[in-house]
């Protein structure tokens, strides 16, 4: 069972690295925003799987909190983009 958790965590880390790559390189700012969103959902999975792996599922509140509050960043972002509709060729 532990090897499964190990594989899952490792792959999640790699996926996280990919989204950081896109966040860093992303030509337009929308790619960076997309990368942030995907990194957040990967980290929610990572925390949940890690807590399951170490046998303490009662601390899942953190993952629940992230799932809840994650939209606030995107909302503030979309608000910022609507307020400044400069074309996307930053």
């Amino acid at each position: 069972m532990e090897t499964v958790y190990l594989i899952v965590l490792g792959l999640l880390l790699i996926a996280g690295l990919l989204s950081i790559w896109r966040a860093g390189i992303g030509p337009t700012r929308f790619d960076r925003i997309l990368a942030v969103n995907t990194f957040t959902s990967k980290s929610i999975l990572f925390i949940s799987v890690y807590l399951f792996a170490t046998g303490h599922p009662e601390y899942l509140d953190i993952a629940l909190l992230y799932a809840l509050v994650n939209y606030v960043t995107s909302l503030a972002l979309v608000n910022y983009l609507n307020r400044n509709p400069v074309s996307a060729n930053d």
Binding site: V8, L11, L12, I14, A15, L18, S19, K42
Partner: peptide, 15 residues
């Protein structure tokens, strides 16, 4: 779990 992670990985590579 493995299926889910592979899907996430596919999504990541797609990104």
């Amino acid at each position: 779990l493995l299926l889910g992670v592979l899907t996430v990985l596919v999504g990541g590579v797609g990104l």
